[in-house]
Amino acid sequence: MKRRIKLNNGIINADADPIRRLIDVLRYDLQVTGTKDGCGEGACGACSIILNGECVNSCIILFGQIEDGDEILTVEGLLKDGKLSRLQESFVKNGAVHCGACIPGMLLSATALLNKNLKPTDEEIKDSISGNLCRCTGYGKIIKAIRECI
């Protein structure tokens, strides 16, 4: 199955089996490996991407469910002119990244939040990343990094 989609800052053609997981198309077929594969069952958020403006888990979406013209944002797309986004800078500054496995997903969940809500409360920040598990940094610094970006 062929699809023409917007991936980060470019238009690309993707061709894959419709029952292939979207995350595998991204990581293996398109070699865009920032998106991580954790639990593979929708529970950890490591594979979070932004699809048409909404944060979703790419491990439980099949390539066949993608339409021509869909827009996908992965962590690679947060870079602008080779520079980290404000949110990414804030993660670095706050030491909110330890092993990094959860971070692409965290960044996308937080990006989706900040795109819709310019002044989220702490409760809204926590809610936005409640589907993203971090097993080493701890949530305190991650929440602080997001809060400092408001």
Partner: peptide, 9 residues
Amino acid sequence: IGARQIQNR
């Protein structure tokens, strides 16, 4: 139900 990603989809 689930979390944001699940609710969005």
